[in-house]
Design a protein around this nucleic acid. Structure first.
Lengths: 198, 198
DNA sequence: GGCCTTAAGTTAACGCCGTCAACATTTGAA
DNA sequence: TTCAAATGTTGACGGCGTTAACTTAAGGCC
């Protein structure tokens, strides 16, 4: 019998079920609909049950965000694994980052929300975020001299993150060619600018 | 007698007082402390009074955000007015943007928060945001050919916005030299990369 | 100056939220 | 088998956004 089977009174795997429920609520109805009570309702337990598995609401949010970082990391790994050439690889990584954000708007917002509090309070979340970030750092390392690595890395992450945020909130007027082309052009021209001399 | 004088029962200028109160709460205690009831308490009126001036909480948030965009625009104007050389001007604009974000973290988050809903619901907010954005667009126009303006503009905004967000949420490990130097280097190297040929 | 519409306040209530204390049930190890 | 610990339940608290119903002050009109 799987550990996720319910036995009537005891749920079996409520922690995971709550993260599932929260993720679903976030994806389907947005951040405002993601409440502890709603997650409990979806999971079919009482309002206070989540407190046996999460110290407070932020702990559940952190678990959802952690799953988001893991998924982002997974997608980036796929892209990195199928692209050898360093410029192209970094550029595709950037595109994958932005695409992930646009496909999971509420989740992406949560992953960078101040609601989560300090990363220090959620070690698992910090680790998952660091793994995702590490992929990009590796790709940058193959393009720039070590002396400029930190700046180049911060710059790369900033462009893709900023582009994701601005598109997500509808702050950028889309040019002819649409979203995909803008993403391609912005990431491509940034990666070109990274090279010491063109 | 100024229109902001209270006459006992009637406040005199409650709308402005509520925006003041909300801005203060946001700055001193953060987003979570910014509630309609708290703003009303600070302004010294009852919990329902704000509804005579704002249709709902989001309308108050939009007014606060609008003020934020106006202040950001003001700061950027000062920088743009005192820097003639186009590269330097754009770079300083970027630095000013990031500095504004770091000095007003909660306000900056609100200005780009999905809580505000669509910009179409808040024309004043949209206009204030467009003015601030326009300054940057002008600076970019002096650096790149018209054919790449849109991409360059999106890229520029993305870097500075992304850098602001990541620093704000403590996601970037600070190199030796600290925040200011990182901001300077990232913006400078991006502006350098903008030029058609170095 | 008195009247009366209306803008701008008030109080009281509704349902929802996060959270906690007190209690109930199930599980598994001694 | 017994009993402690883990995992559930109910019911309550205060705070939130929001609304309805009521009260007060301001300002134009005769």
């Amino acid at each position: 019998m799987s550990p996720s089977q319910s036995t009537g009174y005891h749920h079996g795997n409520l922690r995971t079920a709550l993260i599932d429920a929260a993720t679903e609520l976030l994806g389907r109805e947005g951040n405002a609909a993601l409440t502890l009570r709603a997650a409990a309702r979806v999971a079919g337990v009482s309002q206070a049950a989540p407190y046996k598995h999460f110290s407070d609401k932020r702990a559940l949010l952190a678990a959802v965000a952690e799953r988001g970082y893991t998924e982002l990391h997974h997608r980036c790994e796929l892209v990195a694994g199928t692209t050898r050439e360093p410029h192209t690889r970094l550029q595709r990584l950037g595109e994958a980052y932005v695409r992930f954000a646009l496909e999971n708007p509420a989740l992406f917002r949560l992953m960078f929300s101040a609601e989560l509090g300090s990363m220090a309070d959620h070690p698992g979340l910090a680790a998952a975020a660091a793994r995702a970030h590490g992929l990009m750092e590796d790709a940058v390392r193959q393009l720039v001299p070590p002396s400029t690595l930190e700046t180049a890395c911060a710059g790369t992450w900033s462009v893709v993150h900023g582009l994701a945020c601005l598109l997500l909130e509808g702050r950028i007027r889309l040019p002819t060619g649409g979203e995909s082309q803008l993403i391609h052009q912005v990431t491509a021209s940034f990666v070109d600018g990274l090279m010491p001399d063109a």
